[in-house]
């Protein structure tokens, strides 16, 4: 299986030399397969956003290497190919929309790639339809809700036809409705368009049906596995200050009280099914 992104022994410090800052990333080794839905969780300062910026060469590792489709991010001649392959969506939707009209903003990426106008039109239509914002193509961004703006930002990345989208806490500034819109859009893109998704978040519920969950703490990978494997480790997660999904927490409490219940229950449906059996 081809790996879309590989991180090999990646360490990173924001400043080197005299005033050496403590490393933000410590010897990280990760490999992501094509088409996977990966969730990265960790509390503030765990290094997850710094890691995200390594995936499209906004930051370069101090030690080690990051490869995007076998292109080394340190190799300047691949820079634009890397950024086109791995698109990055940021936390604040307001600060990543460039143009004053939705469709022009979605066209911004393809325009930068030097794609012919007719092809850009097709891509804009495809991207806006994929995130369900086609009816809003002539709107100015400030007339949209937070969730809609974030979907426009995602469309702006999709229009560049990336193979992988890295989302850095895309729902942190949104209300619950906006959050639901964005998450279902991301899931749809992963399932229907086969785009690899790396979702960085601190909402556990958002990664419950991911293919793989990675937990970071203090610049290191603490846990790595399927959601069931990861959320089973309630004690470990609690120790580094993370919450588990409420249902999992409930199952954990019940187990402690001596009730025989599996520790890998993640959704309400699973819980209901188990209890009613």
């Amino acid at each position: 299986m081809a790996f879309i992104i590989r991180a090999q022994n990646v360490s990173f410090c924001y400043s080197e030399g005299e005033s050496k800052s403590p490393p933000v990333l410590k010897d990280i080794n990760l490999q992501f397969e094509k088409g996977e839905f990966i969730g990265i969780i960790g509390h503030n300062g765990s290094g997850k956003s710094t890691l995200a910026k390594h995936f499209n060469a906004l930051l370069l590792p101090t030690k080690g290497n990051v490869y995007v489709k076998d292109m080394d991010t340190k190799d300047a001649k691949h820079l634009w190919d890397i950024r086109q392959t791995a698109g990055l969506v940021f936390q604040n939707p307001d600060n990543q929309i460039v143009a004053a009209i939705v469709e022009e903003d979605v066209a911004f990426g393809p325009e930068n790639l030097g794609i012919p106008p007719e092809e850009i039109r097709k891509r804009v239509e495809y991207a806006l339809k994929a995130v369900g914002m086609w009816e809003y193509k002539d709107f100015p961004p400030h007339m949209l809700s937070g969730g809609q703006k974030q979907r426009v930002a995602i469309a702006g990345i999709i229009a560049m036809k990336p193979e992988c989208i890295v989302l850095d806490e895309p729902t942190a500034m949104l209300d619950p409705i906006g959050r639901r819109e964005v998450i279902s859009t991301i899931k749809k893109l992963n399932k229907e368009e086969g785009i690899t998704v790396i979702l960085i978040t601190h909402f556990m519920e958002e990664v419950v049906d991911a293919d793989r969950v990675i937990v970071m703490d203090d610049g290191k990978v603490v846990l790595d596995g399927t959601p069931k494997e990861v959320f089973k480790e309630v004690e470990v997660l609690k120790k580094i200050g993370l919450d588990v999904p409420q249902v999992t927490e409930l199952a954990h409490q019940l187990r402690k009280e001596g009730i025989d219940i599996p520790s890998d229950i993640l959704t309400i449906e699973e819980m209901v099914e188990f209890i009613c059996r």
């Binding site: 906004l58 086109q84 393809p110 325009e111 930068n112 794609i115 106008p117 560049m160």
Partner: peptide
């Protein structure tokens, strides 16, 4: 903008 491959007006097309 940089992560959306913006590198100035050079080689840029318009929709």
């Amino acid at each position: 903008m940089e992560s959306r491959c913006y590198r100035g007006g050079h080689n840029r097309t318009r929709m």
